[in-house]
Write a protein that binds this DNA or RNA. Structure first.
Lengths: 259, 259
DNA sequence: GCCGAGAATGAATCCATCC
DNA sequence: AGGATGGATTCATTCTCGG
């Protein structure tokens, strides 16, 4: 339980999420982008490495770091998500929200899992990338989805994020992580999180969640199993502007929880 | 099995879908907008009429025709969808596509049902209404979703509809049906249907699917249990421009099926 | 016909009351 | 106790209407 990195605002643990989550508390928002275990209707299509699955095969970008934990079938994915989501909810204050990215194929399994874990599922947002790969005879896959909800009643935080957010996906060659979300997309995903809350990302990757949390005036905890990403994110955090504690709207009006 | 209305292009049956579907054949595309049985996290919120559920209580629009069959719980909704989807697939040619509207809450149940029925689920499109009712502390519900896929292999029809379609919802009082889809939205939903195919809508409502099919150069069958809508649609179809058989791309190149 | 100001609206949700 | 009913709430977009 020794952090890999910590400063006034952000803390990184180099560990498996299951080793850290049981010891956390005070979480006000879960915002994450777990491995989708998706890609392909057949088992064989899922069993390749993350790199060859998600770096499009006709690009020159088949390089970079891959990531692990992306080979579960539907039943295992449901069980695994239910477990880490249960642990996250256990670390959360009443009224904490969640916002979890997924693709169309895993959305039903993920929404089952959040409910198995005891969260209240309250909606689905859509990140429109504007251009998906076209597909003859089919609709292009131009969206990723954001399942959101809360632990118990929803705090009426006076924010009104849109249900659809439009933002082009960055080119693969500029990403630190294969499935890295653009910064505006992460800011959108944090759009209903009250400043001052503690944001948790158990699958930190390149750390976009932690950066977005900092910009929003939130503290944050990231957990990442691959040390190379921990190093990258620690460097990013050191170079970003220092954390300014929230001076934004009166916290007293922003509901219960870790304010 | 006597049509309520028929012309060279469109046929309407005033009946329950289950009475008609077993006797249909040659369907090349299922495009429909079934009752969602949605609305509210609690059973009580689903058990009111469609009008009071969906015509917002603060508007002056609590009038007009409602619709039935919108009060099923999750288990019943899954079973019911599985049954009519099975019947639709039975009436379909190999390679026929489906495109079915639903809201965020029923999307997982619907995608289960299409797979129970033997269809291949291939993706989710999103109709963005640009603006949904705002919700403090939450993402606005600005989307309806379009689950799509095929009966067997997907024909490589050379069309590339977008995964996200943006179109404002028209005001309730200008609609013939409470949940009527704008014409551009239906045209989008038919975006991967080859002209000349037979389009089926077992929950016809105000007939937007049939109109969109006509504009696309497709024949169409609609089934509707409420005679008032049958009458409205028959009138719409009589007043629309007559059907021009497709003169569009060479049908031979557009795959198998009802061309 | 064009423009701007003001009004209306929403495939809701939550909760207090009433049966 | 549990289901049914009705009111309050929210704001970007669309609609309406007058100039």
């Amino acid at each position: 339980m020794t952090p890999y990195y910590t400063d006034g605002q952000a803390t990184i643990y180099h560990a498996d999420a299951f080793d850290i989550l049981p010891r956390l508390e005070g979480v006000g928002a879960l915002v994450t982008d777990p491995p989708y275990s998706s890609g392909g209707a057949f088992r064989g299509d899922r069993m390749t490495t993350a790199l060859s699955k998600y770096a499009s095969s006709d690009s020159s970008a088949q390089r970079g770091i891959g990531f692990t934990g992306d080979n579960r079938d539907q039943r295992a994915f449901l069980a695994w998500c239910s477990l880490w989501l249960t642990a996250c909810r256990g670390a959360s204050v009443e009224g904490a929200t969640f916002a979890i990215f997924t693709d169309w194929r895993q959305l039903p399994t993920l929404t089952d899992a959040v409910q198995v874990a005891g969260y209240v599922w309250r909606g689905v947002g859509a990140w429109s990338k504007k251009f998906g790969r076209p597909r003859a005879g089919g609709f292009s896959g131009a969206c990723e989805f954001l399942a959101w909800g809360s632990h118990g009643a929803l705090d009426a935080v006076p924010t009104y994020p849109a249900g659809v957010f439009e933002c082009s996906a960055p080119p693969v060659r500029t990403r630190a992580h294969l499935t890295e979300k653009p910064e505006p997309v992460m800011a959108w995903a944090l759009g209903n999180v009250a400043p001052g809350r503690l944001v948790l990302d158990p699958f930190m990757g390149s750390g976009s969640t932690l950066i977005a949390a900092r910009l929003r005036g939130c503290s944050a905890v990231g957990v990442e199993i691959d040390e190379r990403y921990c190093e990258i994110v620690a460097r990013r955090l050191s170079q970003e502007l220092p954390f300014d504690p929230p001076t934004m709207p009166s916290p007293g009006l922003w509901g219960r929880g870790a304010l």
